[in-house]
Every structure is written in structure tokens, then in C-alpha cells.
């Protein structure tokens, strides 16, 4: 079972494992620094349920759940 960034509870953090094959935002998110191995923390969800905001390496980026589903996380052993 693989967790995705979309499912990560608010306030929790995890390391990015990889991107779903064919994720159309992979390149863009990686350029912004969301590389495999980077630790991200989900900081909030918009009042209407979408998009979400995540924090990593000092930046804060918002993305829609559809894109967040493509970001696979390492599950803590």
C-alpha cells in the first residue's frame, strides 16, 4: 500500500518516494524542489476542500488533490 500526498493528514510530514507514472505535474513540482527524498508537511486544506498547501525546505506550495494523488510518499516503517 502506498500513501499519497493527497491522503496525508494535516500537520503530518513524510518523505516523497516517487511520482506516479504519467503524472503531468511531475516536472513542475520537481523543479520547485519537490524531489524524491524531500520531506513535505501538509499544512492546510482550502476551506472548500481543495486545493491543499504543503511546506518543504522553507517553501510553501499549493496544489490540487488531483496532482497530490500523483505524489507517492514513503510510509514510515
Amino acid at each position: 500500500m502506498t500513501a499519497t500526498l493527497s491522503e496525508l493528514p494535516i500537520g503530518q510530514s513524510a518523505r516523497i518516494k516517487a511520482y506516479e507514472k504519467g503524472s503531468h505535474t511531475e516536472q513542475r513540482l520537481m523543479v520547485m524542489g519537490l524531489l524524491p527524498g524531500v520531506e513535505v508537511r501538509k499544512i492546510r486544506v482550502a476551506p472548500l476542500g481543495d486545493p491543499i498547501a504543503v511546506e518543504f525546505a522553507g517553501s510553501c506550495v499549493s496544489l490540487r488533490r488531483r496532482e497530490a494523488i500523483g505524489v507517492l510518499l514513503e510510509t514510515p516503517a
Partner: peptide, 9 residues
């Protein structure tokens, strides 16, 4: 095409 929304805060 459905557009991604990736925006830095």
C-alpha cells in the same frame, strides 16, 4: 486539458 494548479504561497 484539465490544468494543474501549482502555486507558491
Amino acid at each position: 486539458r484539465p490544468q494543474p494548479f501549482v502555486l507558491e504561497m
